[in-house]
């Protein structure tokens, strides 16, 4: 598996947004700072981080909503900025599909599910019998192929709508799905079933998935590889078993420790956590000078000014 070339590579991707308020000076926000990642075919890469860490910006740049300030996005080895022929661009946009966080606004309320899926099917699978293809695709995402097509989005639950969004990606024969928090607006009791659906699309259809989430527990469930982002930089990446199971970077450890664990009672006297959190955040925000490989394929960031190391020592003492 590891010898396969990546389906998608981000090469020192940087994005700077310029905010121009009505009054006052324009300010620059560095949303991404030199992000490099590889996504291997048929696997899921989880991109984990807090809100504002830049993880959604990565997703939006891959599907072309934003252009990079610098750096490259390589799809099967080709820089997508160099896809100048219309045919190539179309093929890329077909191969890479996005599933959004909000399943309620991603579908057109005035059209049936049949309309949503058949448009995609007729454009991308014109040779197939439309009704059979529709049924197959609904079957693939565990929706009832008989009753679902004639329904409108408001007649479906959030989880079912999210399944329609995945069906739409299947209808255009996507090879890479960028799923931006696909479960965070769903009820807890159906989150796992959507994760299971993604798992199955990956193993049965060989889809690659970039799974953007703030929930490290779901990353462990779905993704073979995990990258952790903080303030626009990747601070740790590698196989999920290592990154989530035995995190090495201070920020990943903090994130890991903060995941609610019903077997641990919190008390008010634990002031150490907040103090740690402040130190780790300050240290992790410093520019990344390079990545150190701590075990095979498992990298952690070296931060400038060396304050990361100090924070780690203090943490150990605490």
């Amino acid at each position: 598996m590891l010898s396969d070339p990546p389906i998608l590579s981000l090469d020192r991707l940087t994005k700077t947004f310029t905010l121009r308020p009505i009054f006052g000076r324009a300010t620059q926000v560095e949303a991404l700072r030199a992000v490099s990642l590889d996504l291997l075919p048929g696997r899921a890469l989880a991109l984990v981080g807090e809100s504002g860490s830049g993880k959604s910006t990565v997703g939006r740049m891959i599907v072309g909503h934003h252009a990079p300030t610098s750096g490259r996005i390589l799809f099967e080895g080709r820089d997508i900025a160099e896809l100048t022929r219309r045919g190539d661009q179309m093929r890329y946009r077909q191969a890479v599909q996005m599933v959004f966080q909000d399943p309620f606004s991603a579908l057109n309320p005035a059209h049936t599910i049949r309309h949503h899926l058949q448009r995609a099917l007729s454009l991308h699978q014109p040779e197939a019998d439309p009704e059979t293809a529709l049924r197959e695709i609904l079957d693939d995402v565990d929706l009832d192929p008989v009753s679902t097509p004639s329904k409108f989005p408001h007649e479906l639950s959030g989880g079912q709508r999210q399944r329609v969004n995945f069906a739409r990606a299947l209808a255009v024969r996507a090879r890479l799905i960028v799923a931006d928090e696909p479960t965070s607006m769903l009820d807890v009791s159906i989150r796992k079933s959507i994760l299971a659906l993604m798992q199955r699309l990956k193993t049965e259809h060989g889809l690659s998935i970039l799974y953007i989430t703030h929930d490290i527990a779901t990353a462990e469930y779905l993704a073979e590889d995990t990258a952790v982002m903080f303030r626009g930089q990747v601070v740790e990446k590698g196989p999920t078993a290592q990154v989530v199971g035995a995190p090495q970077h201070g920020y990943t450890r903090l994130l890991r420790a903060a995941v609610p664990d019903p077997s641990i009672r919190l008390t008010g006297s634990d002031a150490g956590f907040a103090q740690d959190a402040r130190q780790v955040r300050a240290a992790s925000a410093a520019a990344v000078r390079g990545m150190t490989e701590v075990s095979t394929g498992h990298f952690i960031a070296d931060h400038a000014a060396g304050d990361h190391a100090t924070a780690e020592t203090e943490r150990a003492d605490a």
Partner: peptide, 15 residues
């Protein structure tokens, strides 16, 4: 609930 696999054994240092 997806719960971290080894959450129980590997409890965080501070909690």
């Amino acid at each position: 609930m997806p719960i971290l696999a080894n959450a129980a054994e590997k409890g965080p240092a501070h909690a």
